[in-house]
Design a protein around this nucleic acid. Structure first.
Length: 591
RNA sequence: GAUCCCGUAGCUCAGCUGGAUAGAGCAUCAGCCUUCUAAGCUGAGGGCCAUUGGUUCGAAUCCAAUCGGGGUCACCA
């Protein structure tokens, strides 16, 4: 049980003994005592005054005395300042915590709870390579999956590949027009970049054609429709839907190139999926749902034959679910896929990692799923995250103003290499070991950079300023891990050996912090928020760093003190490693 | 027009289920490597928590309005 819960329970029991009143955890707060006051944990008394009919001082005295008397294993002494009841927690409590957990690599994690959850993330288009925004999505999805696992859920990671539609046809048309049968092999290019270049090429050509038409006096809206390359693209989409072999072959070929490229990127950044859905196979889903919806009178048909749902009672609009030509729209496919997910995997919850521009769409999706009786529709969660923008504004693939995922990862690795070389601490590493280390540090810096902020906030990335390796960063945390490992290689920790019975302030600060790991994971899970983990792990590393600078471990005052510090170091290393794992970040043994 | 999100140090962000004197990192300045890895540590400066009103013993935190920034409200995905 966590210390805060322990204190809550003890206080509730004590209040009942003294006043014969029943309180719950929600009736009063237990906080970590602020550093400027004496004590470890604080009970805030104000909210209890009215019910107990006492003054803060009287309540504090009675409660403090009773708690210390009846729980000597937890509380040693107390003081009261202006309605705050501050307790010292017994050193023996912290010692026991350390002894029982320092070497447990599963510390902080919960056993399986029997619940299954699907996390859908990444979900790329097959007409362009991944960019920095996709990386935020991938890192968030992976991290949330790890956090859910640590909280006892069985997790199924899924990916929906957007492999059809007008935007896919654009790069296909441009390739036909301009490629002269070039391939990724013939140009020595990564397949996704190769295809992406034709997507950009399409837009260049399209703009050119529209300008020519408007120069001839055709209104812009008309010119956009008349541009020959756009007409060709629309024809291609129709041919694709009709299953015309030539188009299907081209589509398969170009998607194949993209998948080869994606595989490399996913492997580099450490993303994987248990299930991949292709939109080309799911876009017809949901049509039976439409019929069911009409039968249940949840949907209604308009005069032109289009089908709608009226969500005005929920404060939204009327929403189209089937076009007048009978083809389904995005939301309809999504309902169909949502249902399929539940049927295939018997999941209890479904989490969608999707950008905040689709907040409205996801709200509608959940509402319709609930109305249609899709199983567990109440447990559809949208992990909504803000866009990654450049100082100049939004990234646009069409215009080539994107920070490419492969490029930024490569840059980070190069940065790691230069900084490592400058420090010269790993000169004995083999070329292979060095390469691995640069990858660990570079990718760690990038992941931490994207995960350390609240997902829902949009963030600005300035390519002119390199991502930091000092301070509140991945490499700082990795460095502290490596430093602990170095100590542990040089100083033997003998299990069962006697440890010192008390703590110095910095040692106490560290063990109190380590105790909070479980609570932090709970919070991150409840909020689907990896930044809570990032902030916590940084705080642990920083606290250790202060402790390390102030107190020698190898040359501790006594053998017992050395043993205590070694155990603290092991536990810190374990928590750092586990915490970073929850973010999808590796930690090196040396750096 | 409707609706959602954001606004905290020069910059990037914590803190938001109300509690004590609002915290980090970067940047700036001053110290600290013949002792366990200095990607480090210690200290200094830097704040009308967008504004106004309300609720409360107590508000950066809750409520309302206003101002600024962004998203969405497509027979696009």
């Amino acid at each position: 049980m966590q210390i805060v819960q322990n204190i809550h329970q003890a206080v509730i029991k004590s209040l009942f003994t003294i006043y014969n009143l029943a309180f719950t955890e929600k009736d009063f707060q237990v906080n970590k005592t602020k550093p400027e006051f004496e004590g470890d944990y604080t009970v805030v008394l104000f909210s209890l005054l009215k019910t107990t009919g006492t003054s803060a001082d009287k309540l504090g005295q009675e409660l403090g005395a009773d708690l210390v008397k009846n729980n000597p294993e937890l509380f040693t002494r107390f003081n009261i300042i202006k309605g705050f009841l501050n307790f010292h927690i017994a050193d023996s409590f912290w010692i026991a915590l350390l002894q029982n957990n320092y070497n447990d690599i599963c510390y902080g994690k919960k056993p399986l709870n029997g619940k299954k959850v699907m996390v859908e993330y990444s979900s790329p288009n097959t007409n362009k390579p991944l960019h920095l925004g996709h990386l935020r999505n991938n890192f968030l999805g992976w991290s949330v999956a790890e956090i859910l696992k640590a909280s006892g859920f069985q997790v199924v990671k899924s990916c929906v590949v957007n492999d059809r539609g007008i935007h896919i046809c654009k790069s296909m048309v441009a390739w036909q027009l301009f490629a002269n049968d070039a391939t990724p092999q013939s140009t020595h290019m990564k397949g996704d970049h190769f295809v992406g270049d034709y997507y950009v090429k399409f837009n260049d050509e399209y703009k050119k054609e529209v300008k020519e038409l408007t120069d001839q006096g055709i209104p812009p809206a008309e010119a956009e429709k008349q541009a020959p390359i756009m007409i060709a693209t629309q024809e291609m989409l129709q041919d694709w839907e009709a299953g015309k072999p030539g188009v299907i072959n081209l589509w398969n070929k170009m998607n194949g190139w993209v998948y080869e490229g994606f595989d490399v990127t996913y492997k580099t950044i450490g993303s994987d999926f248990d299930e991949t859905y292709y939109e080309s196979q799911t876009y017809l889903l949901g049509k039976d749902i439409v019929q069911q919806g009409i039968d249940k009178k949840i949907f209604f048909t308009k005069h032109d034959g289009s089908v709608w749902i009226d969500l005005t009672a929920e404060g939204l609009d009327e929403k189209l679910v089937l076009r007048k030509d009978g083809t389904s729209v995005y939301i309809t496919q999504d309902i169909g896929l949502a249902k399929q997910k539940y049927e295939e995997y018997k999941i209890d919850q479904s989490i969608y990692v999707i950008g905040d521009e689709q907040n409205y769409h996801m709200k509608v999706l959940k509402l319709i799923a609930q109305k249609m009786g899709v199983p567990a529709a109440d447990d559809i969660h949208h992990l909504s995250y803000g866009m990654v923008e450049l100082p100049t504004g939004k990234m646009k693939s069409r215009e080539g103003t994107v920070v490419d995922a492969d490029d930024i990862v490569a840059e980070m690795e190069k940065e790691a290499e230069e900084k490592t070389a400058a420090l010269g601490k790993v000169k004995d590493f083999t070329a292979e070991e060095l390469k691995h280390l640069f990858h660990t540090i570079g990718l760690g810096a990038l992941k931490f950079f994207l995960l350390r902020v609240d997902p829902k906030k949009r963030m600005v990335f300035n390519p002119e300023e390199s991502i930091d390796f000092h301070g509140f960063t991945g490499p700082f945390i990795q460095f502290n891990y490596a430093r602990i490992k170095s100590i542990l290689r040089k100083n033997e920790l003998v299990p069962g050996k006697k440890v010192a019975p008390d703590f110095l302030p910095l040692e106490k600060e560290l063990i109190i912090l380590l105790e909070q790991f479980e609570a932090v994971i709970e919070q991150a899970c409840a909020e689907l928020n990896p930044s809570a983990i990032a902030i916590y792990v940084f705080t642990v590393a920083k606290t250790f760093s202060s402790f390390y600078t102030e107190h020698s471990i190898a040359n501790a005052e006594t053998a017992e003190k050395k043993q205590l510090r070694l155990q603290l170091s092991v536990m810190t290393a374990n928590v750092i490693k586990s915490g970073m794992q929850l973010l999808g970040i590796d930690v090196p043994e040396r750096m």
